[in-house]
């Protein structure tokens, strides 16, 4: 795995992400500053971590989506390169037009940090091959604006094409408004683009990877990615 972690001013989970990538894949990622116009040669995974890029003072992710490095990311994705956006990263991917829809303020209008349960909808993708379809995983969320919404047609397409990879659910895997903490439509927690190579998700799998600290359900995502990339190489 030759990952590149993008760093925009105000991003703050880049260290968590880099540590997890190193822990799971054995290789430290390149940290790529937003003003760069190219990705490091040989990059096979671009990760946009969480945080508050540019303070989220405009719409979340709107300014970062227009950074120089994002042109390189668009080109990389167009060639089928794998892109993972977590939390603010998901918001940036939506603002950059790489994923459809938008993340609105949480339904109850408060920032929420807690462990949530996600149903993994498919396992036949490079992002979810480390899980079984239907598996329930426990990972933390920490966001004020994670309430995913898109127009009806787009949501229908996402569902119809199996592009919802993660959905908020109860501990036993039931989709239930009581377990959808931010009010996202269809309890959507993570989606991929049409081609399936760009994933955006609100929860933070990178914070649940060490048994000594807590649950390790986030590990499967990174381990699966590492495997997929090793196979491809």
């Amino acid at each position: 795995m030759k990952a590149a972690v993008l760093v925009f001013p105000g991003i703050n989970r880049e260290r968590d992400m880099a540590r997890t990538l190193k822990l799971v894949s054995g290789q430290a990622p390149a940290m790529v500053w937003h003003a760069e116009t190219a990705l490091p040669a040989g990059t096979d995974l671009v990760v946009i971590p969480g945080g508050f890029s540019y303070g989220d003072y405009l719409r979340c992710g709107a300014i970062a989506a227009r950074s120089p490095v994002m042109d390189a990311v668009r080109a990389f994705a167009a060639k089928g390169g794998l892109v993972l956006g977590v939390c603010n990263g998901f918001q940036i991917l939506c603002e950059a037009g790489l994923l459809p829809g938008v993340l609105m303020r949480n339904q109850q209008l408060r920032f929420i940090c807690r462990d949530v349960y996600l149903k993994v909808e498919r396992s036949n993708t490079p992002f979810t091959r480390g899980y079984n379809a239907g598996q329930v995983i426990r990972v933390p969320v920490a966001h004020g604006e994670g309430n995913y919404i898109a127009d009806g047609e787009t949501v229908a397409r996402l569902e119809g094409e199996g592009r919802v990879l993660f959905r908020y659910c109860s501990p036993d895997g039931m989709v239930d408004p009581n377990w959808n903490h931010n009010g996202a439509i269809n309890a959507i927690a993570g989606i991929v683009n049409e081609r399936g190579n760009v994933l955006g998700m609100m929860p933070h799998p990178e914070n649940h990877v060490e048994a000594s600290i807590g649950p390790t359900d986030g590990r499967g995502l990174f381990a699966g990615l590492a495997e997929a990339l090793a196979k491809a190489a």
């Binding site: 703050n12 408060r110 920032f111 940090c113 600290i213």
Partner: peptide, 12 residues
């Protein structure tokens, strides 16, 4: 719950 208490990955 309104405070991010897990960022950093070190909250035991």
């Amino acid at each position: 719950e309104q405070y991010d208490h897990v960022i950093g990955g070190n909250t035991v």
